[in-house]
């Protein structure tokens, strides 16, 4: 890694990551409080920037304000990265994050203007998680740890750990889509329940493989414990959130316990997806792919002879 470490850029990425997490909470609160259409117009709220902050308007308008702030911070991140960062792919990632946050704003607007139809809320919910993952990536790629030299860890197993990690992340994202589909009343609960068991299998499989192949690599150990813990909590939260929906089904309005549990379940889902991406990133950082390993081996042999 030849790039210089920019502590300011890294810290800024971390701040944006924390703010994005707040935005995820704000967005989840909108859905759980049935407040997505409390403000029927867009981009203004009731034709103004300062609508009456009562009832559902409070949740929806707060979500819009925080989102606008995140958009502004992402512009700064993109410009800063473009100016300071020498790695072209990191610059493009920052730009992609900016594109994602703009698209996310447009999807949010369409969600309102199209009355939650045409799958807009699901697309909005899923892109939120992709954006969160991208910002997490920015925070990781700009860290001192990522830029400094790390010992390369060979992977002798098959399929490669990269394949395991990617498959796991893709499965978690599928579950994110299923969860959003159920939450926005487009599909029944059973595909999401099925998805939970599928994710349980892929997370366990990935964690076991990490343990088996890289049991003594500190970062891999931490990542393994993290994804196992977060998914375990998420699984239990899913049961609790569903139970809270059943118990309060006859209530005349969203009840606080249901709101709290579904919001926590939603944002922990985002954390689970972020953790699965983190495992992918760590694998690509520490473990050379088979083609890279072969190239290194050829070079070494050539140097010896």
């Amino acid at each position: 890694m030849s790039s210089a470490y920019h502590p300011g850029l890294h810290r800024f990425s971390l701040v944006l990551l924390a703010c994005t997490f707040l935005l995820l909470i704000a967005g989840a609160l909108v859905t759980s409080n049935d407040a997505a259409l409390a403000v029927p117009d867009w981009p203004l709220s009731y034709g103004t920037l300062t609508p009456p902050m009562v009832g559902g308007i409070f949740y929806e308008h707060s979500h819009r304000v925080i989102a606008a702030g995140i958009g502004f911070l992402t512009i700064i991140l993109a410009v800063w990265t473009w100016l300071a960062e020498s790695r072209r792919w990191v610059r493009w990632l920052a730009l992609a994050a900016l594109g994602a946050v703009i698209l996310q704003g447009v999807l949010g607007g369409l969600t309102v203007l199209l009355n939650l139809h045409y799958g807009m809320p699901i697309a909005h919910a899923c892109l939120a998680q992709i954006f969160f993952g991208a910002v997490m990536g920015m925070a990781l790629f700009t860290s001192r740890w990522w830029i400094s030299d790390q010992p390369s860890v060979p992977d002798s197993g098959s399929p490669s750990i990269h394949s395991f990690a990617l498959f796991n992340a893709a499965t978690v994202f599928l579950q994110v889509i299923l969860g959003a589909g159920f939450r926005h009343k487009s599909i029944p609960i059973w595909p999401h329940i099925l998805g939970a068991f599928l994710v349980a299998a892929t997370v366990t499989w990935t964690a076991l493989t990490l343990r088996h192949r890289f049991g003594n690599v500190r970062e891999m150990k931490l990542a393994r414990i993290l994804i196992n813990s977060v998914f375990g909590v998420q699984f239990l939260l899913g049961i609790a959130a569903w139970a809270s929906r059943l118990v309060t089904a006859d209530a005349p309005q969203p009840m606080p316990a249901m709101v709290a549990l579904t919001v926590i379940h939603t944002v922990t889902g985002a954390l689970t997806f972020a953790c699965s991406l983190l495992v992918v990133m760590l694998c690509y950082r520490l473990v050379p792919r088979s083609s890279e390993a072969a190239m290194v081996s050829t070079r070494t042999e050539a140097a010896i002879s």
Partner: peptide, 10 residues
């Protein structure tokens, strides 16, 4: 018929 400002209104 809902009111999303006041989610109990139906």
């Amino acid at each position: 018929v809902m009111c999303n400002v006041h989610p109990w209104m139906r």
